[in-house]
Design a protein around this nucleic acid. Structure first.
Length: 429
RNA sequence: GUGGGUGUAGCUCAGUUGGUAGAGCACCUGGUUGUGGCCCAGGUGGUCGAGGGUUCAAGUCCCUUCACUCACCCCA
């Protein structure tokens, strides 16, 4: 029989990798909760037009990277390539808006983009998102960045580089784009790389981001967006930076920091790492005033960010697993049924363990118990079967062994399981 | 969509100028009565990614194809 195999770019998460994801989710819930965010869960499948309207028809994401297909009635559906559009749609759809009220949501789950997989990039990848609606103030942007830094710090990633920029608004960005186009037009075209000769017309901001050394040199002289901001945008950006400075946040201004989604304006930021391959961004976000209105909602501002869980995971050590409380070794096959029932009693009391259904030699069973990492090996064989006892062997360093009646073990379970444990509180469940 | 690299045991990999497969780890069984870890001995396990070709003979050479991987484009 030939195996089916998985879909390209879709991966299975086994332990200990899966443990890292659980840890990320648990930490995000805890930290974001402290900042007043509440969890929102939105569908994985949305109407295609949602992303076309929000992300932008001409972006690469919408143009060539979406999992889009007709449903059974021929309507165009798309597996979400990012979270914000769906969250905004839900916010509008769910009537969550109340004038003057600030809404804060976080969400996590799988996203889908039809790209060639590489390190730190899968076709199904996972993000943790946070969004704030209804706060026009620069303080909201700063709070998000502070929350993100806190989250990253609490999972042990406090050395990551942060970059921020302002992309201006519909008032001032056109002027900058024009200045940039004129700058590129004045250059010796031969010196630009092939991609940039194309990009300078399609998306001039992208040229600022080029990795080719020669382009980087040329671009160093390019006009900076931050010199072309209107008064309001400039004021907004100054305030964000001032708060970050006062909070002691280490960041770099990067006037070449560009977003791939059309809805961003004003503040944008990115957290990067040089240790996870060519894809360096582990988190990114910014302000998207106007998006809610674009999607048919009220004229409410928005700002938020996304973390790439796979990329964060590359930087994490797997969490330590606590071994199970017991391993029930069956040394006589006639004891298997009693063993399972006895384990059931222990489990219903809150203790965790495995029962070894295949009876075998004492040596092989103890080897199995040892590999299981359980604290105690509970042995049941011919002798124990007769007089309703169980032999308790402490598998920890210097542990002893005794045979007691099963009822006595049940009555004094706490003592048996945790007598050598400093963290005895974990036995209270 | 484009380019590079790699496909040999469950895992990580050796495999010499073509002569029909190995190691380490893992797994299983033992090392006298029902006692783990360390050590020792033995054992299970591979149509060498797939298909075709050259040859007396192909893991090794040639062609095709698939998969994985890294990078570009782009992005978290």
């Amino acid at each position: 029989m030939s195996k089916v195999g998985k879909i390209k770019g879709f991966s299975d998460l086994f332990p200990p990798e899966s443990g890292k994801f659980s840890l990320l989710e648990a930490k995000a819930r805890e930290v974001f909760g402290r900042y007043g965010f509440e969890e929102l869960r939105t569908p994985v499948l949305e109407k295609t037009e949602l992303f076309a309207k929000s992300i932008g028809e001409d972006t690469d994401v919408v143009g060539k990277e979406m999992f889009t297909f007709p449903d059974r009635r021929g309507r165009s559906m798309t597996m979400r390539p990012e979270a914000t559009a769906g969250v905004v749609r839900a916010f509008v759809d769910g009537g969550a808006y109340q004038p003057g009220k600030v809404s804060k949501y976080f969400t996590f789950g799988p996203m889908f983009r039809y790209e060639r997989p590489q390190k730190g990039r899968q076709r199904q990848f996972h993000q943790i998102n946070a969004e704030i609606f209804g706060a026009v103030e620069p303080q909201a942007d700063a709070e998000l960045i502070l929350m993100l830094r806190t989250f990253l710090g609490e999972i042990g990633l406090d050395k990551l580089a942060a970059e921020i920029n302002s992309l201006g608004c519909p008032e001032c960005r056109p002027g900058y784009r024009k200045a940039l186009s004129e700058f590129f037009a004045g250059l010796d075209q031969e010196k630009l790389c092939e991609d940039c000769r194309r990009r300078k017309d399609t998306n001039p901001l992208r040229v600022l981001d080029c990795k080719v050394p020669q382009c980087k040199e040329l671009v160093a002289e390019a006009p900076s967006i931050t010199d072309h901001l209107c008064t309001d945008c400039d004021e907004h950006f100054r305030t964000v930076r001032m708060i970050l400075d006062n909070a002691g946040v280490d960041y770099q201004l990067n006037h070449r920091l560009v977003r791939g989604l059309d809805y961003y304006q004003r503040t944008t930021f990115e957290i990067t790492s040089g240790d996870i391959g060519a894809q360096t961004a582990v988190a990114g976000g910014g302000r998207y005033d106007g998006l809610v209105k674009t999607l048919g909602g009220p004229d409410v501002s928005g700002t938020g960010f996304a973390c790439g869980m796979e990329r964060l995971s590359l930087l994490l050590e797997p969490p330590e697993e606590g071994g199970l409380d017991f391993f029930l070794a069956v040394v006589d096959e006639k004891a298997v049924n009693q063993a399972l029932l006895f384990a059931q009693q222990l489990r219903s009391m809150g203790f965790g363990g495995n029962v070894d259904f295949s009876a075998g030699s004492m040596k092989s069973r103890l080897r199995a118990a040892n590999k299981s990492g359980a604290k105690l090996c509970l042995i049941m064989g011919g002798a124990e079967l007769e007089d309703r006892t169980v032999t308790i062997k402490d598998m920890r360093e210097g542990g002893g062994q005794e045979t007691v009646s099963r009822d006595i073990l049940l009555e004094n379970a706490q003592r048996y399981f945790y007598r050598n444990d400093n963290q005895s509180t974990q036995g209270i469940r």
